[in-house]
Structures are given as structure tokens and as C-alpha cells.
Computed example of a mutant assay.
Amino acid sequence: MSSIHPTAIVDPQAELDDSVSVGPYTVIGPHVKVGTGTSIGAHCVLEGRTTIGRDNRIFQFNSIGAIPQDKKYAGEPTGLVIGDRNTIREFCTFNIGVPGAGGITTVGDDNWIMAYTHIAHDCHVGHRTTLANSTTLAGHVELGDWVTVGGLTGIHQFVKVGAHAMVGFASAVSQDVPPFMLVDGNPLAVRGYNTVGLRRRGFSSERLAAVRQMHKLLYREGRTLEQAREAIRALAAQTPAAADDVALMDGFLANATRGIAR
């Protein structure tokens, strides 16, 4: 049976699984869908065309699915989709998308999203990310799987952060961050690669060596980006165990649109 506090206001058209719990004074709009086992704390507002998966923990005082902070938005039927098993702490704001850019904001599965995080319109957050307190994603930002972002960090619109990258505390991210890299600062600088995170995720010594070599080719030998990409692609044959990692890096570099962080 669902557990909806008597002070909560849930629109009759909202679709909540019977196992969903809703805390006091929360407001849920007519186009919201919430999956099995998700809990929603007190004083939250869930609105817009928002779909939330199963087993999420949404703490108190969150704004989920509000219209984008974009002057061009004129009420179009855009959306927000949140996956499964996410933890969303207090005072976060997630916005729906805008037309012309896909019209949808997405958050994947198993993310740990800490207090005061803002996810703007048309952002795409992958799986198993960690976004520390007061992380701010401007519109159209893309975060790959396993990305970690330190607190008080701002990420410029249209920036991409590759899988397994780590962004340090209080950074200003205005260029794309390649996978596996460790960056921080204002202005942003590449400090190395995410050794600790990769080891925690079970990367073998061969894969770690390949990541170390990709970092060297990109940042330590004075190569142009195209020269570095050519050398990186050759690593797949030299280290077959890291072929997927090499492909991930090469694909990211091929699609970087704001230049890569240096």
C-alpha cells in the first residue's frame, strides 16, 4: 500500500506505484509518474512531465521537474526522466528540457546527488555519478558514467565530462573533460588521471597503464590533438585488455565541442 501523508497534495492524474511513500506537505502534479519503492520526503514539489523510476530516495525540500531557467521556454511539453536507485539529497533542483535540443533532461541509475545540486534543462547525467554539495550543471551538460564532481563546482553549458573523470572542489569547468582525467581549479587544469577511482572500480594493471599512457599522449608530449588521437588509437592493439577504454577516449575526443581541458 502507498504511504501518502494526509497533508501531501497529489493530483489525481499522477501515476504513483502503490509502494511509493510521500512525506508531509509535498505537492505532486498531474503529469508525474513514480515507480516502485521510491520514497519522497517532506516539502518537495514534483511537477512537469516527470518520470521517476524505482527505489529512489528523494529527501525533503527538492524541486523536481520545474520549467527551465531559459527565457525561450514557452510552455512546450518537454520532460525529465530519472532512473532507478538514485539518492537525491536536500534542496536540489532538476529542470525539464527545452524544445530544439531533444526536450528532455535525463538522470540515470545509482547516482549519489548531494544537497543544493542544480541540473538544468537538457542535461544528461549517466550512471553511478557522485555530485557533491552545490554542484551546478548549466544547460545541455553531459556527464558520463562514474563521474565525480566536487562541491561548489560550476559546469558551463554544453560541456561534456567523460566517464570515470573526477572534477575537484570549487572548480570552474568551461571545456570538455576527457574520460579518466583528474581536473580542478579556476581556471581549470588537468592534474593527472583518476588513479584512486579507477582502482576502486577494479581496473587491472594493464588498463591502468593504458590510461596513464593516454594521459601522457594528450598532455605530456606536446602533440596536437589529432596526433594524440592517432597514438591513442594504436594502444588498442598494444593492450587488448584496454581496447574498450581506448575506444571510449577516442570517441569522446572525436565529439568534443568546446575543446578539451588542458
Rank of each mutant, 00 (worst) to 15 (best):
S205Y: 08
F180D: 03
L253I: 15
L152H: 06
G37A: 05
S134N: 15
L198M: 15
N186M: 04
N86D: 06
A261N: 01
G139K: 00
Q227W: 06
A243W: 03
R223M: 14
Q157W: 09
V107I: 15
H118N: 14
V177G: 02
K33N: 00
M181C: 02
A170M: 13
A132Y: 14
D250H: 08
L16I: 09
L16S: 03
R191I: 11
A241D: 10
D122W: 07
I155V: 15
G185Y: 02
A8R: 08
H31F: 11
V107L: 14
L80I: 03
S19I: 07
P187G: 02
I155P: 00
P68T: 02
Y73E: 00
H5W: 07
W112N: 04
R57N: 10
R223G: 09
N56M: 06
S204D: 02
G83F: 04
D145N: 14
V98I: 15
L248K: 05
F94W: 00
D122R: 03
F252I: 04
R89L: 05
H43L: 13
K216I: 10
G79E: 13
E230W: 12
T239F: 12
G251C: 07
I119R: 06
M214S: 02
A115H: 03
I88D: 05
D84F: 04
P6S: 13
Y25L: 11
D244I: 10
S2G: 10
F91M: 07
T153G: 07
V149F: 06
I113C: 02
H121P: 08
D84S: 10
R258K: 13
D176F: 10
T51A: 11
G83W: 01
A170C: 12
T26W: 05
